[in-house]
Design a protein around this nucleic acid. Structure first.
Lengths: 343, 343
DNA sequence: TGTTAGCACTCCTTGATGTTGAGTGCTAAC
DNA sequence: GTTAGCACTCAACATCAAGGAGTGCTAACA
């Protein structure tokens, strides 16, 4: 366990470094912080902190830089929780005001807001991993040649599909098919359709191959839609503003990780608990982002993960602020999703 | 009009520069191309081409670099149309094979393919700018407390919305409302809903304010959905690989233009004709991309623009190849969209 | 025992300087 | 019209010295 004074020095170093991106030296530290000690004393403490692994030196005769372990300690126990400034809160509310219609837009907007306020890259991942149970299906007329096949699930989601009426088909006949299938499929989970069920469907509409194809396609689509994930992303530009990405190689490595949706999803699925969660430096999975930290929060509904939002930036980031922003938006989004879901 | 020889020299310079990204000098040019002339002669020609505005010199004693005007001439008349290599064609087909289900996925995939093959940034913009005409609406039962309001338009698109049944409402009553509204609204264009129509709707369901709200919201959503644009984007990483973006300032400027969907849409809406279309350097609207060229193609359906695909890269790009790729995918996408639409 | 002043040392950064090489323009000869 | 020759330009690169911020260590001090 570190002495209070060492913790304090570590905290000051981190905060200075986060602000300036320059290694911080002993003299500079005392100049800025009037802490009643001489540079020499600080030097001694810094040397010890380095031995303990909380600081690093880019080279002899440069100042000290926090190590991943240093950041970790900072995030876990040194950092003083920050309130979101009123200005930021009102900004956020202002941005959200404009459109709150489509859930889709809310997520997109959230990613944008998150990146603007934190000045870092942000993600919003929605995992609409909902169980969908078939309720009934029905045909609706459209015109002489076409009709609509409508599929209703227990959550009220309606999938629909326009199809050409097979020549010579009678409307009553279609209604019978719908009736028969509705009875057969009622209560079946569309999340795990198996061959047995499809076979039954096939048997129920032997007369009409085209109709069968459309029906099955629609069932499948509903199935895949219920597993659908969507990733929203904002503020990649901010990364290039960070001095750590002067080095083009690094920037490129990072961008290529981000462009692979697959990888991002992997990143975001790490977390199993609710609440805000910080990954620092090498704790991250992929090599492109091992100089980065990520602050993420997952929100759930009835115990199931339905989405994650996250901020990604250099390890040298304003943890306190970003954590508070993520927290805030996390709650906001949770509210929106819940409200939308009970409708 | 340039002499044949000058055109030839210009073409060679451009192709050399595109490949190497280095200013090309007279000596180097003759060495590589065995064109039976001495460097001195080439120098004379180059000097003339520079005076005419087709070439530029970064500084005295550097080689020549094509100007925007030079590229323009090249694209318009010097460039020999290229066939897509068989390898590329089979690659494309392979990629498309996997999933052809959702239109959505097709666009996303197209953006990805486009950027992979051209090694540049690519866009796919869909402008589902379709006139939608109301046909009828209908209620479908869901459970004791909820029902589904379904809206059918002439193109067969069905919008639907779950709502809570007002307590004490009778099903027959709802059906009457639907009937009444269907009659009133049949044939009305949802693309330009006006207050008069909404007023009529209001009158038709005076009894039930909640129902009114849901109905109007749905009409509005259908309206906005019919104007909905979607932008897909792929391969931003490639830009950072280009030597012209060593300069971080430039890269950042470009990325920030790209991140503003609004701006990108603006860019892509320039074009009014069908077919492939090239914008070079300063011909582009925004300052962030004035070192860039864009190759785009718009596809239409019944005379209406429904989508655009585009490749954006440094002016120094492989025009012939990229044009052929854009062309190819353009036709492919057109086919997919048409097929999807007539279903 | 903890703190501090002093000092030699390290090493990045910056700017000046010289060298190299690819390329040019011009002139005169073919 | 083409070409060889030549003086000139200028970015790129390497080398070198000076400056400055920072360190570690030792010895003195409270």
């Amino acid at each position: 366990m570190l002495t209070e004074r060492r913790q304090n020095i570590l905290r000051l170093i981190i905060e200075d470094y986060v602000a300036s991106a320059e290694p911080v030296g002993s003299r500079a530290l005392v100049r800025k912080n009037a802490l009643g000690l001489s540079p020499a004393t600080i030097r001694n403490e810094m040397a010890d902190l380095e031995i303990l692994g909380y600081l690093e030196q880019p080279h002899t005769s440069a100042g000290r830089v926090p190590s991943a372990k240093g950041y970790r300690l900072y995030v876990d126990s040194l950092l003083s929780p920050e309130q979101l400034s009123e200005k930021d809160v009102s900004l956020i509310e202002h941005w959200y005001q404009s459109k709150t219609q489509r859930l889709d837009d809310v997520f997109r907007l959230t990613a944008k807001i998150l990146s603007r306020i934190t000045r870092n890259l942000s993600f919003v991942l929605t995992q609409a991993h909902q169980e969908r149970v078939f309720r009934y299906m029905k045909f609706l007329p459209l015109d002489e040649q076409r009709a609509i096949l409508v599929l209703v699930t227990d959550s009220g989601v309606v999938e629909n599909r326009v199809f050409r009426l097979p020549p010579g088909v009678i409307w009553e006949e279609l209604e019978q098919v719908a009736e028969r299938l509705s009875n057969r499929l009622a209560g079946v989970s569309l999340t795990n359709l198996d061959e047995r069920v499809l076979q039954e469907v096939r048997e129920a509409i032997v007369q009409n191959a085209a109709l069968y194809a459309d029906t099955v396609a629609m069932l499948r689509e509903t199935q895949s839609a219920s597993k659908r994930e969507q990733l929203y992303l904002g503020g990649a530009t901010h990364l290039l503003n960070q001095p750590e990405f002067r080095d083009l190689e690094k920037a490129r490595g990072l961008l290529s990780v981000i462009e692979e949706e697959r990888l991002v999803r992997d990143l975001l699925q790490v977390q199993k608990d609710d609440g805000v969660f910080v990954t620092i430096g090498e704790e991250n999975k992929f090599s492109g982002i091992q100089d980065c930290s990520m602050i993420q929060a997952t929100y759930r509904l009835d115990g199931k993960t339905v989405g994650t939002l996250a901020v990604l930036g250099p390890t040298r980031m304003e943890y306190a602020k970003i954590i508070s922003v993520v927290n805030f938006l996390h709650h906001y989004l949770k509210g929106v999703v819940e409200q939308n879901n009970e409708r």
